[in-house]
Nucleic acid binder design. Structure first.
Lengths: 209, 209, 209, 209
DNA sequence: TATGAATGAGGTTTCATTCAT
DNA sequence: TATGAATGAAACCTCATTCAT
């Protein structure tokens, strides 16, 4: 490993440290209430240093989502070629969403929030590209599994992309909805069981009778 | 109509004007980027006047969501006792979500965003109560229809509240997910058709085979 | 009494009501934290009405001080021609200060505060004149008694105005100082006894040995 | 001197610069009319910088008073153990008040104003503690001298704390009173001579005949 | 590369005052 | 004379970002 490469590694590691610190702070405070100083402090760095790794607060925040999206994509893609039934694959998708939710309960809302109005037009093209790339990778993997289901005669012959949207949207929406109710009603731990119910309903609903 | 009553009306109307103006601005800019001055300007009022009707920016913003939630609750409750099949009722729910989406594409994310982390603990108790009230009204109406489905032997015998969560979460999630993709891909108008797919799948999935 | 005169009376009474309400509010909140709306509310009037009786907040506030100063002047002047010893007269002055303090613990600081920097150059000439008039009336009465003391050989032959300043300043200063300590130390009721000590010392100190 | 220490120094110096600038502005405008922007401008800093050194306007203002109180306390304590007569010590106290008055004519009213109603309950505990500490130090020193006078048979056997209050209150009150008249009558420079008269009277009044 | 003090634009909010009724 | 809704100027304060070290 050359010295240049080592430096590159070092830099990536530092970047990840910052992202990890930012995730903690954003999670507790939300995007606007979190300050760069808090994040710097959590990363044991000074505010100025953050700007050596991220163009601005927005891009730091977006990096979180991209990181998660990347992770989500990776996990989802892994499922596609596993030697299990289509039904089980969709069950895995559900578990991936639960894992992500367990990892950070607020990350899904960030994913939605990301490009909705408030969030930026100021994202650099590079970041925007990544966003699209990972997003479509994850989506593509789900579509592939749905197609497999249709091809094997298990699923009804709807537009596969739409069905994938239903899976993704339902999973994410159920997580968010149950989670938001948790905060209102002080109930907990319904997310998992409700997602399981969602899975049952959706898998059943997609099947050819 | 007495003078007092007329003034009361007048005041309510003004409040609604502000809410309407705020909705436009928040929709375009998002909560944090929208300024009270912009909202005042959109309502053709001065900034100070907003504070005669709303305690602060936060409460103005929350009022939007409550308004929608109230509307959503009203529409959803109306469905319950209509003389149509359970299946059609759930179809109506889907349409209500589409209507809300058409009315304001960003409002659903506000509903989620509302009590998630960043959004406030500073909401006055009164506002908080309203939030809970309308939220549980809407949810309750969906549960009632699900129960009807179970009782008539149409639906599988799962926990009705969980099934209602799946409906609400899926509908909202699909809307948000497809909408967020719309912004990324500049595609449009898939929301409706995807929601229809979602309906088919979910209604089918809930049915006893 | 003519109708004009009656109206005049009525107006004065209303003015006094406002002053009374203002005194309560200013006392608790201080000049800047007190709002015209609070004062109006305390006077069971609307904000706009206050401006029919007072040019602005400043002048309303100043009117309080003038009222007190007028009262103080009246009380002090009454002492001058009473058929009691000089010593007793100065004792009466002390009691007048205590009465004023009992009536409103914050009024003395207002009297000092009145024309010090922050308080206005915007006072109307009329108000300014009154201020001077009542102030010098009160001061003049004290001077007269001091002079009487000097003339009768009781007091040392210092500049009478200076001695009167010492009396006034000491009385007021002791009240303020002890009162401000009361707030820091949560002690109470030392004002009276300390003022008595002050009296003893001052009267003794002014006497010819 | 290490680099850390140098930075510490630098920081203190900056703080003092701000306090000095604030004193000028507060002196002319009073607490409420003075704006943070003016103060920043006077200190040749930007508004935001002030908040790096002081939590808010209130605490900046209080720091002035504490600074003076500290100075007052130091000066007064120095007097206690000097090898001069009790009478001269009390004369020194008078001079200290005159010095403070010369340094900033408005500072004494701030000292009174400080904890009276309007001024804050929002002071941080630390600041509050300092206030109490320096205040009681100064007061304690005066008490010590009064006790010395009583013990040596020079002064009458009154409660020493009360006599100290009379000294402090009278000195401060005379300064304030004469100063406030100065503004009304455009006379000047009577403060000193009147305080001298006050001293004569008080010292004479405290003496055993 | 890292720092962190300083910046300063800009936002929310308050409130004395006005004026149409 | 009385009202009170509306005004809008102005203040405090925050915090993303910069830049000299």
């Amino acid at each position: 490993m050359g010295i240049h490469e080592r430096k590159q590694r070092e830099k990536e590691r530092r970047r990840d440290d910052i992202i990890a610190a930012a995730r903690k702070v954003f999670s507790v405070k939300g995007f606007n209430s979190a300050t760069m100083e808090e994040i710097a402090s959590a990363a044991e760095l000074s505010p100025g240093t953050l700007y050596l790794y991220f163009k601005n607060k927005e891009e730091l925040h977006t990096s979180l989502s991209i990181n998660i999206l990347k992770h989500l994509g990776t996990e989802i893609k892994q499922v596609v070629h596993q030697d299990i039934s289509v039904e089980e694959k969709i069950e895995r998708f559900r578990d991936v969403f639960i894992d992500v939710y367990d990892y950070d309960a607020n990350i899904l809302i960030n994913l939605f929030h990301l490009q909705s109005g408030e969030t930026l037009q100021n994202l650099s093209d590079e970041v925007m590209e990544q966003l699209k790339k990972y997003s479509s990778q994850a989506h593509g993997a789900i579509i592939a599994v749905v197609k497999e289901g249709i091809d094997t005669g298990l699923f009804i012959d709807e537009h596969p992309a739409a069905m994938a949207d239903v899976i993704w949207g339902s999973y994410a929406g159920v997580v968010l909805w149950v989670d938001s109710k948790r905060l209102l009603n002080d109930q907990k731990d319904f997310v998992r069981s409700t997602l399981r119910t969602a899975f049952k309903i959706i898998i059943q609903g997609m099947k050819v009778k």
